[in-house]
Design a protein around this nucleic acid. Structure first.
Lengths: 172, 172
DNA sequence: TTCAGATCGTCCGAGTCAAGACGATCCGAC
DNA sequence: GTCGGATCGTCTTGACTCGGACGATCTGAA
């Protein structure tokens, strides 16, 4: 399944199809996507501004920022990026020296990506960009409504997640 | 920008990366995406079950269902699908005889896609599948909270939409 | 009428994503 | 030990998306 987004080259965002507000069915799925796309477009812009490629680049940095040792596989599951796609993300981040891949001495199959000081700086910078983007998106919304929104979203994600799991499990 | 989704082949959905619930930052963008992806995965499954390819196939049918005459360009803007991508969607739908492309007699450049009776049947069938999916996603949520959710989502989509427009306008 | 420019749908090419295959490595049973 | 199977990261390959180019067609000015 697409992730934080099957993303196009971020440059294309600027020429994005202006999704007509005329046809906006009170359809949960559609609205979710429209909203998600708009936010992502915003953050993608912020990402390219600071030399990243995608929001996903930042998501990976965010996951690494806590300093926990993680396999690439764990990482890919965490940020909902396919493991093959994660490779290119890490390649890029490593090239920009925001991340280094270390080899786990206990298991030489696995790589432990770790964030560098430079990576941490970019992470922090982007975090503030994200905050302003979210603030703009939710401007004028009551705090308790905001938390309700986040809660409901998390719930949808979790519930459908569980449903999908059940389905695949039953499938084989 | 990706649309109702840059969608992968729907079959892959079943093997979707199970997006870890462990790492779920209270990040609006991330949550939006996670929720949207889950819903889309659900609907994609429903879509393939009834011979469609994607949720987008259904979105197009939904847009056509009101019987309004629309060009492909208008249609693409409506459902937030790139016009070149819409071509393949319509090709597929036409092949399955859910849609026919008629030529506008007043302007022979434009094609007017129209939904067929068979298309209408698929549309209705899918609509009920969508309703059950949404019901499951929002199970136990108060009605007024549901409407609030939809309202906030629409707002985010619209606001960011406007922001993007401004940006592109300023850009040139 | 004629012709330049705009607009429609389509096609092509570059770029991206992910399923499956693969080598390297680990682990447990024998 | 060693051998089979599982698991890691990577690579290959096929499918998909979309920006830009194209022919067909329309419109308005001269």
């Amino acid at each position: 399944m697409r992730v934080m987004g099957v993303r196009q080259p971020a440059a294309s965002e600027l020429a994005a199809t202006p999704c007509s507000a005329l046809f906006r069915p009170a359809d949960l799925t559609f609205l979710l996507h429209a909203a998600a796309d708009r936010m992502a477009a915003d953050l993608d812009r912020a990402a390219v501004d600071m030399g990243l490629n995608d929001v996903r680049d930042w998501l990976v940095l965010a996951a690494l920022d806590d300093g926990q040792q993680r396999t690439q596989l764990e990482l890919s599951r965490m940020v909902c990026v396919d493991k093959t796609t994660l490779i290119s993300v890490l390649d890029r981040l490593e090239q920009h020296e925001l991340v280094v891949r270390t080899v786990d001495p206990a298991d030489r199959r696995v790589r432990i990506p770790q964030i560098t000081p430079a990576g941490r700086r970019v992470y922090a910078k982007f975090a503030s960009a994200r905050d302003t983007a979210e603030a703009r998106a939710l401007d004028g919304v009551e705090p308790e409504q905001r938390t309700l929104l986040l809660e409901l979203l998390a719930r949808i994600a979790d519930r459908q997640d569980a449903a999908a799991q059940d389905l695949t499990r039953a499938g084989r």
